[in-house]
Simulated assay, not measured.
Amino acid sequence: MLQCHGRPVTIRRTAARQALVFLAVHPDGANSRDLTTAIWPGLPAHTVTSRLYTTLSDLRKAVAAVSEIPLIEHTGDRYRLRRDHIEVDLWRFHAAVEHAATAVTARPAARQAVINAYTGNLAAGHDWPWLNPPREALRRRVIDAYTALAATQPDPRRALSLLQDAIRVDPYNEDLHRRAIHALEALGDHAAAEDLLTTFNRRLTDAGLEHEEEVRQPRAASSGQKH
C-alpha cells in the first residue's frame, strides 16, 4: 500500500502497482527495458514502451494528487524511487538484515529486529511472473532470523514458539518442521510432535510436493512405542 501523510494513494492501473513494487525491489533503479520485460513479459520491449510511459505518468499523477514531492526520479533511461523522500517497508527490512549480519554484540536483538521488520509476503495478493525470486529471498531471510534466534534460546518453549512462528511464514519448509518436531519431542510432548508431522505430511501431499524420508517417518519416541 502506498501512503502519503497517512493517506492511502489510489493506484488504479495494475501495471503501475507492479512498476512501483519493482522499483522498491530494485532501489538502485531500473531502465525501460528492465521494467517492460518485467511487467509485459514475452512482448518485445520496443512495442510496449509507450505503455510504460503511460503507466509511469499515471503513477506520478496519483502521487501528485496528494503530494508535491515526486515519487520517481528519471535520469537518462533509469528510473528509481526517491530514497531521500520516501520510506519503504522492504528497505527497512533489508537494513535490519544487514545490521544483523554485521552485529558483533546484541545479536539476538538484531535478529528480532529482522523478524519485527517483516510485514508478510512481498506484494501479497499478486502473482506477477518476476515476483517469486525476490519474495522467496525475503522469506528466507526472515526464516534465517527465526532459526538463528531459536537456536540460541535458553528457554526451549520460547525456541519452539519461534519455530512455530517461522512455520506460519513458510508452511512447506521441511527444516522448520524437523526442528519444531525435535523441539516438541525434547519437551516430552510426543503427541504434539506426531500431530505436527501428520499435518505437515498432509499439507505436502495436498500440494503435490515431495518430502524427505527423515521428516516423513515419526521417531520411535514420538510414536508412543515402549522399549
Rank of each mutant, 00 (worst) to 15 (best):
L56K: 00
A192L: 11
V48Y: 04
D89I: 10
D127K: 15
Y146W: 15
E174N: 00
R60H: 12
E194D: 11
W40C: 13
V9P: 06
S161F: 04
R80A: 15
G120V: 05
E210I: 03
L163V: 03
N132M: 09
V21S: 00
E194Y: 11
W91Q: 01
R111Q: 14
E210M: 05
A62K: 06
T205Q: 11
P133F: 09
E213R: 11
P70W: 00
I143Q: 09
R80F: 14
G125P: 04
T199C: 02
R51T: 09
W130I: 14
G224L: 08
G29F: 14
L90W: 03
H74L: 13
R179V: 03
I181S: 05
T75E: 15
L209T: 00
Q225M: 12
E68F: 02
L160K: 06
A110C: 12
D84H: 15
H26L: 03
D165N: 10
T75P: 05
G188R: 06
M1A: 11
Y146G: 05
E68I: 04
V9K: 04
P156K: 15
A150M: 11
I11W: 12
I69N: 10
V114W: 12
D155H: 08
R216W: 13
T14D: 13
A45E: 14
T119K: 14
T54G: 03
G6Y: 05
Y53K: 12
V48W: 06
T198D: 13
A192K: 11
A100C: 02
V21D: 00
T49Q: 13
H182R: 15
A124N: 12
P108K: 00
R7E: 10
T36I: 07
D195L: 12
E98P: 00
E98N: 06
D34M: 13
I39K: 02
A117T: 04
T55A: 06
D89Y: 01
S32N: 15
I39A: 04
A65W: 05
V114E: 05
T152Y: 01
H46C: 00
L23S: 03
T49A: 07
T10V: 14
P129K: 13
Y118M: 09
G125C: 00
L209W: 08
E213I: 04
A100Q: 02
H99C: 03
P108S: 00
F93C: 03
N31E: 07
Y79C: 08
L43F: 01
A113E: 11
R216D: 09
Q164C: 09
A62H: 07
E136G: 04
C4H: 03
T36N: 04
L204C: 13
I11H: 08
A193C: 10
F22N: 03
P154I: 05
T147Y: 12
I72A: 09
I167R: 04
H85T: 13
H126D: 01
A62Q: 08
T119M: 08
P27R: 14
Q153K: 08
S32L: 13
Y79N: 09
I181T: 10
R219F: 04
G224H: 07
L149N: 09
R92C: 04
E213Q: 09
L197C: 07
P41E: 11
E194P: 10
L2P: 01
L23P: 10
